[in-house]
Amino acid sequence: MVRKPEGNTAMGNLARTHVSLTGALALAVLLSGCTGSGGVKPLSFGPVSAPVSANPQPAGSDAILGALNGGILPPQAASTLSRADRLRSLEAEYQALEKTPGGQTVAWKAPVGRTSGEVTAGTPYQVGQQNCRQYTHNAQINGTPVTGQGAACRNPDGSWTPLS
């Protein structure tokens, strides 16, 4: 009777295949934690899934921006902005609060004229059950520098409301 070496048996081949697949799977799991994209990571307190609201509003919607109650720029300066520039400034505030790592800025600029701004949000913190951030909005409105500072807390629907 001729015996095949043990390494060539069907059982031996199955064992080697299992070991190879297990090693490949382990490597894939280890590498899956690496993003390599260099993109912005979610806020440490941000939800992983969609907002709780039954009708979530997309970023930039009137409801989301309306919750900012006009933003943190001084009202007398903000009132001189055109509607489009006002929306640009509020969208920058929302984006800074919602998506930007602490200390980084979100810039906005009017397509015409000398009006622009930058919003910088601080490190997220929690007050009770609400996630909050301090932020600063530096703007040039028709060439005049204006600054607003404040804090806002995130609502269950994904909007942010400034603290007064």
Rank of each mutant, 00 (worst) to 15 (best):
S116H: 05
P51T: 02
S164M: 03
N8I: 15
Q95W: 04
S82H: 09
R154D: 01
A151D: 02
E98F: 01
G113T: 06
L65I: 08
V29R: 11
Q129A: 12
L65A: 06
S37Y: 07
P56C: 03
G70R: 02
S159Y: 02
T100F: 11
P58G: 02
A121I: 07
G122Q: 06
A63H: 06
Q95F: 08
G38L: 05
N55P: 01
D157L: 07
T123I: 11
A107Q: 14
V52C: 00
R154T: 03
P156W: 04
K41A: 13
L81C: 07
L31H: 01
K99G: 00
P101K: 05
A26C: 10
T144I: 13
P42W: 05
C34K: 07
T123V: 14
S164F: 02
Q95E: 13
R154C: 05
D157N: 12
T105H: 05
G71N: 06
T144K: 15
E98Q: 15
S116Y: 02
S53Q: 04
K99R: 12
S79N: 11
I141N: 04
Q104D: 14
V48A: 13
P74K: 03
G39T: 01
N155K: 15
H137S: 08
W108R: 06
H18N: 11
H137E: 07
A151S: 15
K99Y: 15
V48R: 11
L25R: 11
P51V: 02
A24Y: 08
A10K: 14
S20F: 10
G103C: 07
G46L: 09
R88S: 13
R114D: 12
P101T: 05
L81N: 05
D157W: 06
T22C: 07
G39L: 06
A54C: 01
L27K: 10
A15G: 04
L97N: 03
V40P: 09
L30M: 11
P51F: 01
R16F: 02
N155S: 13
C34T: 10
V146I: 14
L43R: 12
R16T: 08
C132F: 09
P51S: 07
P75N: 04
D85A: 10
L30T: 08
V52H: 02
R83A: 15
F45T: 14
R88V: 00
Q130N: 06
A78T: 00
P162F: 04
G70A: 05
